[in-house]
């Protein structure tokens, strides 16, 4: 079992830096049509299987339905007045859910090569960090002590 350093740097092509492997070539699990059999179990299998996509129209309709429901929920939460300080965090979490839903299933990141996820995630990580810092800088500029 190679240690971390070897995994990062080894020459024979199996290091992390040699990029993740593509979709697996394992045979497809038995599966008829987009949503068949006990459909919820089937949905779960489609949604969580990281390899060859088994998603069909039914699955995409389901994801679209969930996204629409979340949007409705957001708009409804907007009318609820008793949320107080929880309003913004809840909305951010809900929109993050929508964000991830579209990324993972509509943009196929869940079924696709990890390299694409790396590309997007690197920009998201850098972006979210620096823009959060900018918000802090703007909010707390000129204050003698931050903490």
């Amino acid at each position: 079992m190679p240690n971390l350093w070897q995994k990062l740097t080894q020459h024979d092509g199996n290091g992390w830096w040699n990029l993740p492997h593509g979709p697996s070539n394992e045979p497809n699990p038995p599966h008829e049509g987009p949503v068949g059999g006990p459909w919820l179990a089937n949905l779960w299998r489609v949604a969580t299987y990281g390899g060859v996509s088994h998603a069909g129209p039914g699955f995409y309709w389901f994801v679209g339905f969930i996204l629409a429901v979340i949007t409705l929920l957001e708009v409804w939460l907007f009318t609820v007045e008793s949320l107080g300080i929880w309003f913004i965090p809840i909305l951010l979490i809900l929109s993050l859910g929508k964000f991830v839903g579209v990324m993972a299933y509509f943009m196929h990141l869940r079924f696709d090569h990890l390299l694409y996820t790396y590309f997007f995630a690197s920009a998201m990580i850098v972006g979210v960090l620096i823009f959060t810092i900018i918000l802090f800088l703007s909010e707390y500029a000129n204050q003698p002590v931050l903490f």
Binding site: G22, H113, L115, F119
Partner: peptide, 27 residues
């Protein structure tokens, strides 16, 4: 369905479509 989202035409070092890789980098 059996080829996933790989472009069967492309033979690249990563096995991924260059155009798709570029679109992700652009995103």
């Amino acid at each position: 369905a059996t080829t996933g989202y790989q472009d069967p035409i492309e033979n690249t070092s990563t096995g991924l479509s260059s155009r798709k890789l570029m679109m992700w980098a652009f995103l």
